[in-house]
Amino acid sequence: MEGLQPRLSRETILHGVVQILTDMTADWEDAFTGPIGPETRLVADLAFESIDVVQLAVAIEEHFQHPNLPFQKLLMRDGRYVEDLQVADLVEFLYTHLNGA
């Protein structure tokens, strides 16, 4: 059964994530100059460090008003932290967990 909250589409989530990432990295010294999209990688393209991932998680939870998202499911695989993430990975994770999985 559907919850009371309307399901968020992947497009809506992608729009929100890109908005957050664009604002977050706007004044970074080594800012990414290309457009941010599903294939953008957080570490390789946006030069994210681990502390930036933490800030991104907080910003996402605030933006989508959804505290305590299980980011470990995104950031850990087989008991180890992942090396990098694409925006598309993030969107898929959010699509699953914002819509009540």
Binding site: I51, V54, P70, F71, Q72, K73, L75, M76, R77, G79, R80
Partner: peptide, 10 residues
């Protein structure tokens, strides 16, 4: 402690 391993939160 999660199913994925020990997850550290700042």
């Amino acid at each position: 402690e999660t199913e994925e391993g020990i997850f550290l939160k700042l």
